[in-house]
């Protein structure tokens, strides 16, 4: 039988946690702007959903900023935003929904990857509260893209993790 862990994890983010959470925050800032583009390019239900989900990313960014305090980055992950902005802001409603769904799935996979490395409980709890909402948003957007396949709705590709090497904070 393995030994029981007796050392309580830290509450506050460690210095390594700060780097991980900052990366996640830069992605959330980028998602706010990508949803703004999507809302501007959409109408009716797609516009409403883009505005609502964009607001959720804003709330996530605000909470991460609050946790990180003065160490928090204040700008989006520019490289990630640049790579996604064209598809987020153009095409039919179904195409935009499909692209946003893939982004939400990528964010979920990335946040889970971050969570798996965080030591501090506060940061872990916050990221854990963001993950299920972005997963729900992915599920809704898959349906809005025209797919009713449960395989598509439930799909979470671990390989979709956004790489900090490719998209540095």
């Amino acid at each position: 039988m393995a030994d029981t862990t007796t050392t309580a994890p830290p509450k506050q983010p460690t210095s390594a946690d700060v780097a991980l959470l900052s990366f996640g925050l830069g992605l959330e800032f980028a998602m706010i702007d990508l949803y703004t583009r999507a809302a501007n390019a959409s109408k009716d239900d797609m516009k409403t959903v883009a505005e609502l989900f964009g607001a959720h990313h804003r709330a996530a960014a605000q909470s991460l900023t609050g946790l990180l305090g003065r160490k928090a980055p204040t700008v989006r992950n520019e490289k990630f935003y640049a790579a996604q902005s064209t598809k987020a802001g153009g095409g039919t409603a179904k195409e935009i929904a499909a692209h946003l769904a893939s982004l939400e799935n990528a964010l979920v996979a990335t946040h889970i990857n971050v969570l798996s490395q965080l030591r501090g409980i506060d940061g872990a709890s916050l990221v854990a509260s963001i993950i299920p909402i972005e997963a729900r948003q992915a599920a809704v957007l898959v349906e809005m893209s025209g797919s009713s396949s449960l395989d598509d709705i439930m799909a979470l590709d671990a390989k979709a993790v956004i790489d900090p090497e490719t998209y540095p904070a």
Binding site: V108, I112, N113, L115, S116, Q117, L118, A124, A128, I131, P132, I133, E134, A135, R136, A138, A139, I153, M154, L156
Partner: peptide
């Protein structure tokens, strides 16, 4: 383990 838990948890949310 937290990450593994939320991999399942996000499924339940979907």
């Amino acid at each position: 383990v937290r990450g593994a838990a939320m991999t399942i948890g996000q499924d339940e949310a979907r």
